[in-house]
């Protein structure tokens, strides 16, 4: 019985880890697509003439923006997104390790339980 309780709590923990994992993966995917979009914008900015007119959509209106300002906004965004991706990758790795350990623990307990059953 003791073992069964332990197994229960372990698999609950494992489940939680898996849920955290899928949340992180979704976040990672979102960041990836934002990064792609911003990269496209950056590429477009770089190919623009210096006197090009750039507007930014703020709510329902388009505001005219300075070229250099717009460029630095996008650069800043890309930097931030890069950092976030790194951070999330680390969290993902951490959780993978953790859930791997939990899996091993669960398998150990299951093995012990089966042996006991065989002995009984």
């Amino acid at each position: 019985m003791e073992q069964q309780k332990q197994l229960q709590s372990l698999s609950n923990e494992y489940q939680t880890l898996q849920n955290d994992m899928s949340t992180l993966i979704t976040a990672r995917q979102k960041l990836e697509s934002q990064q792609q979009e911003n990269k496209g914008v950056q590429k477009e900015f770089n190919s623009l003439a210096d006197d090009a007119n750039i507007y930014k959509l703020v709510g329902p209106v388009l505001l005219k923006q300075d070229t250099t300002e717009a460029k630095s906004t996008v650069d800043g965004r890309l930097e931030y997104i890069g950092g976030e991706i790194k951070r999330i990758e680390e969290s993902i790795k951490e959780i993978t390790d953790k859930s791997e350990t939990k899996k091993m623990e669960i398998m150990q307990i299951q093995g012990a339980m089966q042996q006991q059953q065989g002995a009984a």
């Binding site: 979009e37 496209g40 914008v41 007119n53 750039i54 930014k56």
Partner: peptide, 21 residues
């Protein structure tokens, strides 16, 4: 024309440039 190039930025382009884009 004004072209939406993503993430809320719009760029004024000539029609030819817009077509190339």
């Amino acid at each position: 024309v004004l072209v939406d190039i993503g993430t809320g930025f719009y760029v004024e382009k000539t029609t030819d440039d817009a077509l190339t884009f």
